[in-house]
Amino acid sequence: MLKAAVQVLVTLAALYLVLQKTDVRQIGTVIGSSNLWYILCAILFFNLSKLFNAVRLNRFFKAVGLNLSWAYNLKLYYLGMFYNLFLPGGVGGDGYKIFVLQKNHRVKTINVFHAVFWDRLTGIIALIFLGLILLLPSSFASTMPEAVPYAWAGLLAVYPLAYVLNRFVYRQFLDLFAITALESVMVQAAQAATAFFILQALAPGTHSIDYLAIFMISTVATILPITVGGAGAREVTFYYMLSHINLDASLGIALSLVFFGISAISSLPGILLRIRHEASIPEATEAA
């Protein structure tokens, strides 16, 4: 309870810090005058990214002997999304998935944990990959030219290093490396498209590359288990990184808040879903 209370305080402190330093009325005006059609496109691409993610996760489940139907896996994924909305660091839903699958299926908890953990890690790897791609043509490259060679080195090294990690630590998923890497990029590309459509809804014609690059970096920040549902962490990242390149922080915070709203709306159906026992194929279960 103390840990949860600290995370709530950190979330509130982060939001208070950012909102104190920005024009709250301007943020409200920007959000209030947003283009609804672009917002609907953003909702569509957000849920498309979650669909890609659920497909990728199901591949890892099958690799450890959990043969779940597409519909069952999707229900479980949206339930996890709902818990991620309220639990610290955006990873609470992962723990819920592990709990449900261990309870309803004859499979070792450690196997489910490995599948969920590697799924999460492949997503972070794709985030870093696309984040570096967006940073290279952004304003950060011109303001910090000394960092550009390191960005190129990271871009070229990220997936070779991921393959080495996969080969020597998670060999059970090695056969899935290529297809899940592609799916991970598709997930994050759809998330970037979500942010792009939000930008178009709020202020078309702005420095899209800069905002999208920061969006990808801020998504990594929301994974850290220091705030509730990642709230606050993304806004702080937007504020300080946009201030560094002298861009309007209010627009970045508005983007962040709208994205959180879309995430919340898309997660609400998860609470209406019911997870029932669905048996795995015996042979695959024994293999686990």
Rank of each mutant, 00 (worst) to 15 (best):
P137A: 03
S256L: 09
K75V: 01
I179K: 15
S139K: 14
S266A: 13
L155V: 12
F177R: 15
L9K: 03
V187G: 12
M186D: 12
F177D: 11
K3M: 10
E235D: 05
G89I: 09
A249L: 04
L272N: 00
V228F: 13
A287W: 07
S138R: 01
L155M: 11
G65Q: 08
T194G: 12
H105T: 13
F46Q: 08
Y170V: 14
F45H: 07
S280M: 01
F46H: 12
S243K: 09
Q191H: 15
A4C: 00
S142G: 06
D94L: 06
F45I: 10
Y72L: 02
A63G: 09
L212F: 09
A13G: 06
W70T: 11
Q191G: 14
H277I: 02
C41Y: 13
F140D: 01
G95D: 01
A178T: 15
F61P: 04
L127C: 06
D119P: 04
M241Y: 06
L17C: 09
I124P: 07
I124Y: 12
L127V: 04
S218P: 07
S267N: 04
I275Q: 02
L127S: 03
V100P: 02
K3G: 04
I128F: 14
A54N: 07
Q172K: 15
H207T: 07
L255G: 02
S256G: 13
R276D: 02
F45L: 15
M81T: 01
Y211K: 08
I245W: 04
G90L: 05
R234G: 02
L273K: 00
L176R: 09
A201T: 02
N53D: 13
A284D: 05
G80K: 01
F197H: 08
A231R: 09
Q172N: 10
V169L: 15
S34V: 02
V107G: 08
F196S: 05
Y239Q: 02
F196R: 06
R59N: 03
L135A: 05
N84E: 01
V107T: 13
S266Y: 03
A279V: 00
V6F: 11
V91Y: 07
Y83V: 09
A203I: 04
F238W: 02
Q172F: 08
M1E: 08
A213H: 13
S263G: 14
L68C: 02
S138T: 01
I128Q: 08
A4W: 11
A254M: 06
S263D: 00
V158K: 12
F117D: 04
T219Y: 10
L74F: 13
K75W: 01
Y38A: 06
S138G: 05
L212Y: 11
Y240D: 01
P160M: 13
F215D: 01
Y83E: 00
N58W: 07
L66S: 00
A221W: 03
P145I: 10
K108L: 14
L19F: 12
N35Y: 05
L57T: 14
Y78S: 00
Q191F: 15
S256E: 08
I275P: 00
L257F: 06
T237A: 15
Y72H: 13
A201W: 09
Y159C: 08
L17W: 14
N73D: 05
E278H: 05
I226R: 11
S184K: 14
R106C: 11
A13E: 03
G229A: 09
P204A: 11
I262P: 07
V185Q: 13
N84Y: 00
G131A: 12
I262R: 08
G232Y: 04
G32C: 01
L161D: 09
I214G: 00
Y159F: 15
T222W: 07
